[in-house]
Simulated scan of single mutants.
Amino acid sequence: MSLHWYTARRVAWAGVVAFVILTVTFVLLEYAPDPQLARIQFRAAASGGSAEAAAEAYVRRRGLQGPLWARYLDYLANLATGDWGWSDTRSQPVVTAILTALPYSLMYTVPAVLLSTFFGIAIGLYSAFNQYTKADYAATFVAFFGISIPNFWFGIVLILVFAVHLGWVPVLFDAQLARTRPFSLANARQLALPVFVLGTGAIASTMRYARAEALEYVRAAFVKTARAKGASEWRILTRHVLRPTLVPLSTILVGDLLGVILSASYLVEVVFGIPGIGRLSLEAIRRQDTALVLGTTLVPVFVAVIGNLLQDLAYAALDPRIDYGDR
């Protein structure tokens, strides 16, 4: 099977996954209670008006009339043409709302992913080469600490220590500063804590996997043979340990990082007041803004689909024994 057919098949499967996620989200939002509708009915009844008429006007204004399947098909048709809908709570197109919030999320997620990948693999390999030493025990402690500690609690503690008491970083996130001077030192200061909080859990997870995989090769016979032939430790690390370690590591690295980053972004943005995708999605869910919820759901789905596709392609490229047939 050719690479092109393999890629097309994976993209098609990714489309099926995205369709299922959107369908489930749409149905759940349909049957979830709408607090805004309840408030409108209460206000109408309190002012002497008709609660039913107010509810009908609300449904008509939000475009919620008609059967569920018909509204869902209309949404999919609009989605195919690039129209992601209109956000009633923000009075702007969903695409505009997402594009406004996306840069704020990228400012801290991209550095967190890059740093966690580099330092996680590096610490994991160092720990595997120095098994049962103080450095290994320290790295293991850091891994368990990073995985176990709640991000929202850790973020609040860091704000109290470094922002309130020491004054090294600002307490509140300045969105205007991030928008006008994204590469300034002042913006880097206010992004330091979100990157550190998000990267702590990701580094710990990556380090744990890298150490476990590298341990299988550190004491392998071919590594002992290379060392007996006079190969340097750097060559042994990069050629004989790192390369085979990346093959199984690539199958779990993307998914695990996405899980840590995407799930933690909601809490991180709420704690630090960052107006990113996570906070936008949370507010949309709270206000029952269906179009905006579906739009913010599409973003992590798209990232996960592309990430898993690249993961599959990298897995086949790193190990020549793997073909593009059914696995």
Rank of each mutant, 00 (worst) to 15 (best):
A143K: 02
V164K: 14
W153C: 06
A204F: 01
W153E: 04
I149D: 03
S148Y: 08
F162C: 08
A214K: 05
A212F: 06
V164L: 15
Y209R: 00
V169N: 08
V197D: 13
A186E: 15
S148M: 10
A163P: 10
Q176S: 14
I156W: 11
S148W: 06
L158R: 09
F183G: 01
W168R: 07
L215Q: 08
Q176G: 11
P150V: 05
P150F: 11
A186P: 02
V164A: 14
A212N: 08
E213P: 00
T200R: 00
R208K: 13
V161Y: 08
T180Y: 11
I149G: 02
A204C: 07
A202C: 12
A143D: 02
A143T: 01
E213G: 01
A210E: 03
V157I: 14
D174S: 15
V169K: 05
N187P: 01
G167Y: 06
V169T: 12
A204R: 05
S184W: 08
N151A: 14
A192T: 10
I149A: 14
Y209L: 14
P194C: 12
F145Q: 10
V195N: 11
S205H: 04
F145T: 09
N187W: 01
G167C: 04
L191K: 05
G201S: 06
G201H: 10
V171H: 01
S205Q: 12
Q176D: 15
V161T: 05
Q176M: 13
A202L: 13
A210T: 09
A192L: 15
V195C: 07
W153P: 09
V171L: 15
F196K: 00
A175S: 15
V161F: 15
V142N: 08
P150W: 09
P170L: 02
H165Q: 15
A163Q: 12
F154C: 02
L177W: 11
A188R: 04
L185V: 14
M207T: 11
E213Q: 13
L172I: 13
R211W: 10
I159D: 05
A175I: 09
P150A: 10
F145N: 07
L193T: 01
R179Q: 13
R208W: 06
H165S: 13
V142T: 12
A163L: 07
L166M: 14
A202S: 04
R208T: 05
F173K: 07
V157C: 09
S184Y: 03
I203G: 00
S205N: 04
A192P: 00
G201A: 07
N151T: 02
A175Y: 12
A210I: 02
R189H: 03
A192M: 10
F144V: 14
